[in-house]
Design a protein around this nucleic acid. Sequence first.
RNA 1: GCGCGGAUGGCGGAACUGGCAGACGCGACGGACUUAAAAUCCGUUGGGCAUAGCCCGUGCGGGUUCGAUUCCCGCUCCGCGCACCA
Length: 837
Amino acid sequence: MTYKEFLQKGGEQKWQDKWLEEGIDRAEDFGEKPKKYVLDMFPYPSGAGLHVGHPEGYTATDIYSRYFRLKGFNVLHPMGWDAFGLPAENYAIKTGTQPSITTAENVATFKRQIQSLGFSYDWDREINTTDPKYYKWTQWIFLQLFKKGLAYEATVPINWCPSCKTGLSNEEVKDGKCDRCSAAVEKKDLRQWMLKITAYADRLLSGLDGLDWPESIKSQQRNWIGRSEGAEVDFKIAGSKETIKVYTTRPDTLFGATYMVLSPEHKLIQELKDRIENWKEVNNYVVQSKNKSDLERTDLNKEKTGVELKGVKAINPVNGKEIPIWLSDYVLSGYGTGAIMAVPAHDTRDWEFAKKKQIPIEYVIIPNQFYYPDVNGNSIILSCPDDCDKILEKVKEVNEGSGFCFTEIDSGIMVNSDFLDGLVPEEAIKKMTAWLEEKGVGKKAINYKLRDWVFSRQRYWGEPIPLVHCDKCGIVPLDEKNLPLTLPKVEKYEPTGTGESPLALIEDWVNTTCPKCGGPAKRETNTMPQWAGSSWYWLRYIDPNNDKEFADPKKLKYWLPVDLYLGGAEHAVLHLLYARFWNMFLFDIKAVPFEEPFTKLVNQGLILGEDGEKMSKSRGNVVNPDDIVKEFGADTFRMYEMFMGPLEDMKPWSTKNILGIHRFLGKVWEIVMKHGTHSIEQNANAELEILLNKTIKKVGEDIESMSFNTAISQMMMLANAMQEAKVFPADYFEKLLIILSPFAPHMTEQLWRKLGHMESICKEQWPTYDPEKIIDAEIELPVQVNGKVRARLKLPADVEEAVATRAALDDSQVQKYVMTEPKKIFYVKGKMISIVV
RNA sequence: GCGCGGAUGGCGGAACUGGCAGACGCGACGGACUUAAAAUCCGUUGGGCAUAGCCCGUGCGGGUUCGAUUCCCGCUCCGCGCACCA
């Protein structure tokens, strides 16, 4: 049988069925072997089916899992479906088909496609987030959060997508647009369920240090959490008891604060209404800001606008000076205190605003040194402290002319700042903070950009929130015994747009009794966001059928944490942040044994279309894995995706290049088929033996470091050499097949049986290499003269320095360049000789 | 603007900790087999020249070093993320 015939006769499918039947891929709880938990980010089963990007990651983890099984590990490698979400619901709106039906169909398609690639998932552990048996526990976790005060109801201005007709979390807004549909996001006051992720800000930040994750993801999470240190300062309002509290990272510049700015949403504005002389103007600005979209408000190119609160002044606590109070939307209500002290001399935004509104500018930091050319072009240097006044003058000159000169925190020197004069900013910050605390007008403060997680959605296809609203008892959680609260079937999936989900229309579902007092009550009609089910799913694989608890603690202890987690980088501040948050919470309530869920994270790079552009239906450059499998087989497909380049890199698809891999597999097939059934020469071919040992070593190391492309090229070299050698010991085939089997499981299984084995190749052991036999007996030693290679000498690998240098100097090519006595000779053992003349 | 990556032949990419740049594959060219084609196999393939040899060459300009794709300084371009966060 040729390789082609094997594929045509459905040979791959045959082995897939057999593996499934024999349960080769099943993980054994509490097994004796060391455990390895290898996890893929589970897919959203869309109607479009699998695209080539999905199997890239799945192949990588499959090779990794198969390798570790051969190495004697008990590997948990599961798969499931993250199936709640808008597409199924939007499809239901269009066609009236229930989301549960479309979801089931899509799952079936995805499963068939994934299985056709021979991935070794333990299908006994398959999960689906839309299964009531699963979301029972999603609801249970929500109730625990509620009971600990980490889930709370609030009516706050949130991001609202007018097209999806639902609220969004901050993480779901990109560039002021909805992450899903790209519609411009609006602000809307809505009653929401919020999760207090901010309570975990510090731990989410510090925990990153210990994780083996890509630096880019860690830094994205750090930026998103956005911790900063500074001070809170109270500014009194002249002739009033009111104060304005501000947050600043630069308390050292307080003497330079010449005005204040409140965000348009600031509470004080309404409270000061009676004293504001230009109320109409002020109120207009507030209303205008409210009607602007986020996109408009955060546009950096727009001119800064603002209105002064006439008739009200603030007092700078450090010098008692009265300063004006302005209102502007360049100050965000959601960060810090929603108010700032403005230091136009040392902040670009304040500078811009002050210039426009002609507010005085007061310099309090100047550079230590200042260079400028005099009329003759000679360089003049001014240095502090002698020339401070002159430097200040020059800085002003430069700033008034060309623009803004910001002084860095670690350079420069304080001026015009009373007790801070002469200090460097870093010291000035400490001194000022201490002064503020002493006077009771401020204190050290830490701020985060991270906001609480808007957790409710006004849509149908999500987990119902298991709470009821009772007039007498308030908000009452369902009894845990009564979970799951199942999602009822509805007639109309259309979002209401009123801030209520379609569930609100089902009266006999909404109207219920209070679990506490038994009186009439109404159910919460918001549903949970897409991210709920994926925030804990890796825990459910461990015990997917348990109906007493989300997983047996003993099993959790055995399997956790996840050793390798692989998926796309797009979830950096969404799923990966939420998942860490939930896991930390579950750790705190002693429901899981580890604080951080994913020890090692790897992001696979995007696969681009053949034209180098992102694959998309509209561009028509989408590759369907089914077509490739049909033409070349699953093994070729898997290996091609791994051979394309480094896993983490973005790389273009090339159907042409698949041929190279297909030829390689055909070559291996031929080598084994031609020789495999005959008796083989037992005399070792020394060179081939070394290559085989090197290959075993390199392929193993490369799999562990996920460098699959180089592992494959090494195996290609071995196959080429075996083809050329024609005759060699029989166990060479076996070793080659075993190390190739994680990559190309089907054809290696077929050939393995052909060699007479009754058991699956999956049950074999990874071959060991002989460390003595990975060193070439003879090497080519390059000889450099003055840095240029002039000769290559064939010498024994373990050649002594004296012998090697002698040989180099005796070489006729070398002698041409070495006329005089060499100044110096470098010998790097086994690498090269470098002669300097 | 800030943060994180990256730039190597016609193409995808290799190169350990500073030690032969271009592994492996694609494509191209030449040859074998064939009536022919496909498939397969063999050979050549960074550029240049005065071609047994020499010179140039890893985005650009400098530096350190016997020796730099690798380290340092200064740029350019590209990708990704965040972005009025005080």
